[in-house]
């Protein structure tokens, strides 16, 4: 898992070199972003093969069209956005699709609570741990997605808004409301 911070300057240089046809830079971009794109994709559809295939196709496509691509001040954002659009379209056409209605406003975001009690601060009571677990599992799909994009991919609110096809204000409140609920759990003590 990579870090969240990437300087846009570095991104611009990499993107430029990639567009000029550097295979080495392509590999670098690929290795840097494949894991997080894959992990994001898995939360949208849980089908590893489908995610992998679409991700490989995406990278093939950008490699083939590298000369026609626009500027990218954030490669991660550019890739996440393209990948989501592609994956949702694939899901929609997927014959084995389990739920039928899938478009930019209808899809699930699978994000399970995975932390163990022992990883948490030992001073926290078991009760708070359970409340937190419960609280996280009760976040809505949209809240989970916004929070995930923020914390795991370091996107800013404008970028998240664009990826989720909602406005910035809604994005802020998705994150804010989600966190507020969790914060309250720790207030009581």
């Amino acid at each position: 898992m990579g870090k969240v911070n990437y300087s846009s300057e570095e991104d611009e240089k990499l993107w430029e070199a990639f567009r000029r046809g550097s295979e080495e830079v392509f590999s670098k971009i690929y290795k840097q972003h494949f894991p997080s794109l894959f992990n994001y994709g898995i939360k949208l559809c849980e089908d590893e093969d489908l995610v992998k295939d679409n991700l490989q196709e995406l990278f093939l496509t950008i490699w083939k069209n590298r000369q026609n691509l626009g500027d990218a001040y954030s490669i991660r954002f550019y890739l996440l956005k393209s990948f989501k659009r592609k994956l949702l379209r694939a899901l929609k056409n997927h014959k084995r699709s389990l739920t039928n209605r899938i478009d930019e406003n209808h899809y699930n975001f699978y994000f399970e609570f995975s932390v163990e009690a022992k990883e948490m601060d030992l001073e926290r009571s078991q009760e708070q741990f359970l409340l937190l677990k419960n609280g996280i599992n009760t976040l809505t799909s949209r809240q989970k997605e916004a929070i995930y994009l923020k914390f795991y991919n370091g996107l800013d609110y404008g970028e998240i808004a664009e990826i989720m096809s909602i406005n910035i204000q809604s994005t802020r409140s998705l994150v804010y409301e989600g966190i507020k609920g969790l914060k309250n759990i720790f207030k009581k003590k």
Partner: peptide, 27 residues
């Protein structure tokens, strides 16, 4: 500080890890 940390830890996701070797094979 602790509350923020707990919330973040709570949001810890099961992320699949890819080794350098995995990524080479994928390439």
């Amino acid at each position: 500080f602790e509350t923020a940390k707990s919330i973040l830890l709570g949001l810890k996701s099961k992320e699949r890890e890819f080794s350098e070797n995995d990524l080479e094979e994928l390439l």
